[in-house]
């Protein structure tokens, strides 16, 4: 066991109704690290997180969370971990204060009143403390949930899509806060579908169909796929994209509105092909860095085709 690791799980496996939902997942999260957990819908992120905090028993595999065994010491884990569920899971027919107070009581906190007041202040919701939670907007519910799961000052936060449905400004504030917490030594594992959030994590893992396809810093994850990418600017590129896709050496095209990313693993061949394709058109061509999104799409396609994980 490594004392530097907040999460250290090995070969987690979980099946529901004979379908493998999590397949041999191993994850290591260092203390004080913000770890991004990415993957398409239904890939097994929530299931993995639930196994890490002792809510779900894995079919096989083992591991520790804050040094406690995930199989036998879930009571200790619960005490020191803050888990924010993907679906809002506080009581809508209780007021904000009642909700926070209830959470504080569940953790049998000594300075309950003080902690609740502080949390409300931190949210800027002191005046609305006696409003029913059901009356809050989606984004505010999300922020309340975050405040509530941090109330007992956990050493590790497991956040399942905490910013889904939160406006950009609030999202920025939220990430500022996460980094502040990380500086204080709190570890965070956060699942997300936003690429800009993925870029802000110290480390990343990408899971697809229950299998972890990559793990490391975003640089490492991108570099591991050895992709070269060219960007084409212009309008109405759907036809161009289709043409490129049929060419040798072009392994992937991704269209983002007026920007087309063309990627491949053979740099010279790719360059020749894209140059030929834009020859005599008004499209502008530029070599660019391969982004996380290009890599995720690439990994997903390959895993789907080969049925086996890369890396």
């Amino acid at each position: 066991m490594n004392a530097d690791l907040a999460i250290d799980v090995r070969d987690l496996v979980k099946s529901f109704a004979h379908k493998r939902v999590v397949n041999q997942v191993s994850l290591q999260v260092k203390r004080g690290e913000i770890f991004g957990f990415l993957g398409p819908n239904g890939s097994g992120k929530t299931t993995t997180i639930r196994m890490m905090c002792g809510l779900l028993t894995p079919d096989s595999g083992s591991g520790t969370c804050l040094g406690y065994d995930i199989l036998h010491q879930s009571a200790h884990i619960k005490r020191h971990v803050g888990y924010m569920t993907q679906k809002f899971s506080y009581w809508e027919d209780l007021t904000l204060r009642e909700n926070l107070d209830f959470v504080a009581r569940m953790y049998t906190m000594d300075n309950r009143r003080h902690a609740v007041d502080e949390a409300l202040e931190g949210l800027g919701l002191t005046e609305r403390a006696n409003q029913l939670v059901g009356a809050l907007s989606g984004g505010w519910k999300q922020r309340l949930a975050l405040a509530a799961c941090m109330l007992h000052q956990p050493e590790l936060l497991l956040l399942d899509e905490p910013t889904a449905g939160v406006d950009p400004a609030a999202r920025r504030d939220f990430w500022e806060e996460l980094h502040q917490l990380a500086r204080k030594g709190i570890s965070v594992l956060v699942s997300t579908h936003y690429m800009d959030e993925a870029e802000r994590c110290h480390k990343l893992a990408y899971i697809f169909n229950g299998t972890l396809l990559a793990q490391g810093t975003s640089h490492e994850v991108v570099a591991a796929q050895k992709l070269t990418t060219w960007t084409i600017y212009g309008e109405h590129m759907a036809e161009l994209s289709e043409r490129l896709q049929r060419m040798d050496g072009v392994e992937q095209t991704v269209l983002f509105g007026t920007v087309l990313h063309v990627s491949g693993t053979r740099p010279e061949l790719l360059e020749r092909q894209v140059r030929a394709a834009v020859q005599g058109t008004s499209f502008r061509l530029e070599q660019s860095e391969t982004g996380l999104e290009d890599v995720f799409i690439f990994m997903m396609k390959h895993a789907g085709r080969d049925g086996a994980p890369l890396a």
Binding site: C53, L55, A75, K78, V81, F88, S89, Y90
Partner: peptide, 11 residues
């Protein structure tokens, strides 16, 4: 309502 999940995650 999903609140059971939350309860179970608390001690």
């Amino acid at each position: 309502r999903g609140t059971m999940e939350n309860l179970l995650a608390m001690p």
